[in-house]
Design a protein around this nucleic acid. Sequence first.
DNA 1: GAAATAGTGTCTGTTAGACAATATTTC
DNA 2: GAAATATTGTCTAACAGACACTATTTC
Lengths: 207, 207
Amino acid sequence: MIERPLLVNVVLFRLADETLQVLLASPVQAWELPGSELGSQEGLEHAAERAIAALLDRPKTYLEQLFTYGAENQAPVCVVYFAIIPAEAGLVPGKPVRWTPVWQAPSLAHEHAEILAYALRRLRYKLEYTAVGFQLLPAEFTLSELQHTYEIILDEKLDKRNFRRRMLQSGIIEVTSHLRTGEGRPARLYRYRPDAVAEVKARRLFP
Amino acid sequence: MIERPLLVNVVLFRLADETLQVLLASPVQAWELPGSELGSQEGLEHAAERAIAALLDRPKTYLEQLFTYGAENQAPVCVVYFAIIPAEAGLVPGKPVRWTPVWQAPSLAHEHAEILAYALRRLRYKLEYTAVGFQLLPAEFTLSELQHTYEIILDEKLDKRNFRRRMLQSGIIEVTSHLRTGEGRPARLYRYRPDAVAEVKARRLFP
DNA sequence: GAAATAGTGTCTGTTAGACAATATTTC
DNA sequence: GAAATATTGTCTAACAGACACTATTTC
């Protein structure tokens, strides 16, 4: 049976410093997405997690397969995953990697620019129609923080009243008894309800 | 560099005899999804098309990558595509394959039952939010035929007036000057407008 | 004229989107 | 009390969903 080299690449996102960031690697010279070879008996997801564990000191909070690239004459077939990383995760020392705001990514090797653009599109879709947004935040958060997250990723300003109304009506979050105090009036903290089915009930374009 | 065997499987759908059908193969004994090995220099999509051409005398009208399966200890990694096949396509003689209504598929080898279920779900999603539906019909069709297609795949009955209103409002189809005559009043024929962007503008669950 | 299929319009309830004032805290 | 942030409600336009009758053809 014919065999082919197989690579697993990961697009790692995090939210930090008021921006959406992606982890880029520069093992030789050009920048590219981190990845690792698939072991001869290894599962795909396992390889993705191994690639992440090699770079970061915290596990990912969300992992999803994106797409598999394998053009003609292109030696390795690449299975691409994307993952969301807690902002608190630290880099393993000595690795040639860097968190970069996605809007300022340098040009990338291979097809990686295209892959990053696709991953970003998918993240936005997910954000709008499912509950991935919560993966980017700590366990408890204020509605303002949540809205801020959405605004950063969607790169658009949202109306505060409408945001709150829909977010609460969806039943996907619940109030806690805690408050976050700071400047100005303290804010109620909310918590994601993993039990609430985040079913995407969108309007059909075609009936 | 480590190498792995790579398989490309295809889930082929067509609409015939008032049902949605899938092409199943039985090369040895159990039923499974057709597929083929990926050549050493071959692109993934090319392998999928080669697998289709080996079984059918017409090209597919739609091809999309579904997912890549590669569990631990599972020898070949499988990249799965799904495709839509014109009802007029004929089988290449001598191949152990059979069109089967999806609702009556026998139990399948490997993970293929799961894969088929996923492909079907994806087809339904696509149908509701994009314009794949037209791939299942001839170039010109009546609104009744179109509605019928939707009802078969979604497995639910739709309201005629609402269906027509939305389908026409979407601007994705246009009238031709032709009529289809048969029993009862002749029906206007419509045509899909590939130029009309089938953008999925659905309601956001989260603002 | 009976049978078969195509084609059409209205009403209602829900929801998205626009919009501004008040409440609670710190300094 | 000034500054900062949190919280709350209303109105309108658009749309989904329910619903029944008329029109045109063949036999």
